[in-house]
Protein backbone atom coordinates (compact mmCIF):
# COMPACT_ATOMS: atom_id res chain seq x y z
CA UNK A 1 0.00 0.00 0.00
CA UNK A 2 1.50 3.26 -1.11
CA UNK A 3 2.25 5.75 1.59
CA UNK A 4 0.69 8.56 -0.40
CA UNK A 5 -2.74 7.02 -0.56
CA UNK A 6 -5.19 9.45 0.90
CA UNK A 7 -7.23 8.09 3.72
CA UNK A 8 -10.96 8.27 3.10
CA UNK A 9 -11.38 10.45 6.22
CA UNK A 10 -9.78 13.31 4.30
CA UNK A 11 -12.46 13.03 1.69
CA UNK A 12 -15.24 12.97 4.24
CA UNK A 13 -13.86 15.94 6.10
CA UNK A 14 -12.89 17.97 3.06
CA UNK A 15 -15.61 20.60 3.49
CA UNK A 16 -14.63 21.12 7.13
CA UNK A 17 -10.97 21.49 6.33
CA UNK A 18 -11.47 23.78 3.37
CA UNK A 19 -14.00 25.84 5.30
CA UNK A 20 -11.71 26.25 8.29
CA UNK A 21 -8.86 27.19 5.98
CA UNK A 22 -10.92 29.89 4.33
CA UNK A 23 -12.02 31.22 7.75
CA UNK A 24 -8.43 31.38 9.02
CA UNK A 25 -7.16 33.13 5.88
CA UNK A 26 -10.07 35.56 6.17
CA UNK A 27 -9.19 36.24 9.80
CA UNK A 28 -5.58 36.96 8.93
CA UNK A 29 -6.69 39.35 6.18
CA UNK A 30 -9.05 41.04 8.63
CA UNK A 31 -6.36 41.61 11.26
CA UNK A 32 -3.99 42.91 8.60
CA UNK A 33 -6.64 45.30 7.28
CA UNK A 34 -7.37 46.49 10.81
CA UNK A 35 -3.69 47.11 11.41
CA UNK A 36 -3.47 49.26 8.31
CA UNK A 37 -6.58 51.26 9.25
CA UNK A 38 -5.56 51.73 12.90
CA UNK A 39 -2.10 52.93 11.90
CA UNK A 40 -3.53 55.31 9.32
CA UNK A 41 -5.88 56.73 11.92
CA UNK A 42 -2.89 57.68 14.02
CA UNK A 43 -3.42 57.47 17.72
CA UNK A 44 -0.61 57.04 20.18
CA UNK A 45 2.24 55.42 18.35
CA UNK A 46 4.94 56.31 20.88
CA UNK A 47 5.61 54.02 23.79
CA UNK A 48 6.71 55.34 27.17
CA UNK A 49 10.46 55.14 27.48
CA UNK A 50 10.78 56.42 31.05
CA UNK A 51 12.02 59.82 29.92
CA UNK A 52 9.89 62.95 30.01
CA UNK A 53 9.60 64.57 26.62
CA UNK A 54 7.61 67.38 25.04
CA UNK A 55 5.13 65.14 23.21
CA UNK A 56 4.03 63.69 26.55
CA UNK A 57 3.10 66.98 28.17
CA UNK A 58 -0.65 67.58 28.30
CA UNK A 59 -2.02 70.12 25.88
CA UNK A 60 -3.65 72.91 27.86
CA UNK A 61 -6.06 75.40 26.36
CA UNK A 62 -4.52 78.82 26.09
CA UNK A 63 -6.51 81.05 28.42
CA UNK A 64 -6.25 84.83 28.34
CA UNK A 65 -3.75 85.75 31.01
CA UNK A 66 -5.18 87.90 33.77
CA UNK A 67 -3.02 89.92 36.08
CA UNK A 68 -3.74 88.95 39.67
CA UNK A 69 -5.13 91.85 41.67
CA UNK A 70 -2.88 93.02 44.44
CA UNK A 71 -4.52 93.06 47.80
CA UNK A 72 -4.41 96.69 49.02
CA UNK A 73 -3.66 95.62 52.59
Amino acid sequence: MALKTEHEIHGRRRSRNVGLGVVLIGFVALVFGLTVVKVQQGGLLEAYDHQPRVSMTPVEPVAPRTIPQEDPQ
Partner: peptide, 19 residues
Protein backbone atom coordinates in the same frame (compact mmCIF):
# COMPACT_ATOMS: atom_id res chain seq x y z
CA UNK B 1 -6.79 -6.13 3.99
CA UNK B 2 -9.82 -5.24 5.98
CA UNK B 3 -10.82 -1.69 6.70
CA UNK B 4 -12.33 -1.28 10.09
CA UNK B 5 -14.27 1.92 10.31
CA UNK B 6 -15.91 2.77 13.60
CA UNK B 7 -17.43 5.94 12.18
CA UNK B 8 -19.48 4.26 9.49
CA UNK B 9 -22.83 4.84 11.15
CA UNK B 10 -22.25 8.35 12.52
CA UNK B 11 -22.90 11.01 9.87
CA UNK B 12 -19.88 13.20 9.33
CA UNK B 13 -20.22 16.81 10.43
CA UNK B 14 -19.73 19.17 7.53
CA UNK B 15 -18.65 22.80 7.71
CA UNK B 16 -22.26 23.90 7.33
CA UNK B 17 -23.18 22.06 10.54
CA UNK B 18 -20.82 24.25 12.53
CA UNK B 19 -22.24 27.32 10.82
Amino acid sequence: MTDINAYETAPEAQFGDYV
